[in-house]
Design a protein around this nucleic acid. Structure first.
Lengths: 111, 111
DNA sequence: ATCGTCCATCGACGATAGTCGATGAAATGC
DNA sequence: GCATTTCATCGACTATCGTCGATGGACGAT
């Protein structure tokens, strides 16, 4: 932990924020927890049926979660199978990391 | 960790999301890290000077951070002194908590 | 009492984000 | 080839958010 007196540089703060933004929505949290409980990959249709929002909305959130590597996608035939990326879950920064200015765990490269 | 098959209930997901929303902005992360590095309380004016955004903006973010008890405020004379709430930082949920459905650590009651 | 300082709140603005319905594209089956 | 399924993308709408400037209230000093 570095403890200079200045604020965290803006660029680092934005990188941290991009992490937390990925989990700053209730629908995304539901999707992520759903994928984590079923440890097996799930198709978009299954996620739609379980989450209660529209198909395009689920697809949109899955894209956001995939951009930060929180979920991994694999095409199989006509369907896309999503699964949780446990490496990325583990490297997610804690609040203590942020306030103490720990180095950012390289957002899009966690697994 | 509970591992039923259904998604996390919407209410729990929203409570989690409210936590992460508090850190989902670069300016708030800068403010929080600033307060954590100086361990002493800081006035709003000091935070404004160090963060590079307007006074009303800082005041707005401090209000959000105080609502989730991430910072604590104490009036002293004409100025308000803000300091980090280390209990709240420690009880902030990890990503693993969320995806595994750990019980929410009682957002507004962490310290 | 008056002035000046410090801060919270208000109103407004632009930007971003979440949701939906509709459209389109890729793969499968007939 | 054609229809069907499955999903991603597009366009539009609304709501929320971050920021600012201005206003006003509380407190201290003169």
């Amino acid at each position: 932990m570095n403890a200079e007196k200045g604020p965290l540089p803006r660029a680092a703060a934005e990188e941290y924020a991009s992490w937390f933004k990925a989990l700053a929505d209730a629908t995304r949290i539901q999707i992520v927890s759903l994928l984590a409980r079923r440890r097996a990959p799930m198709s978009v249709g299954e996620i739609v049926a379980a989450s209660g929002v529209g198909q395009s909305t689920v697809s949109h959130h899955l894209k956001i979660l995939a951009e930060v590597r929180f979920v991994l996608v694999e095409r199989q035939g006509t369907s896309s199978l999503y699964r949780i990326n446990e490496n990325c879950v583990r490297s997610f920064p804690t609040a203590a990391d942020v306030v103490m200015g720990e180095p950012v765990p390289a957002a899009p490269t966690c697994g």
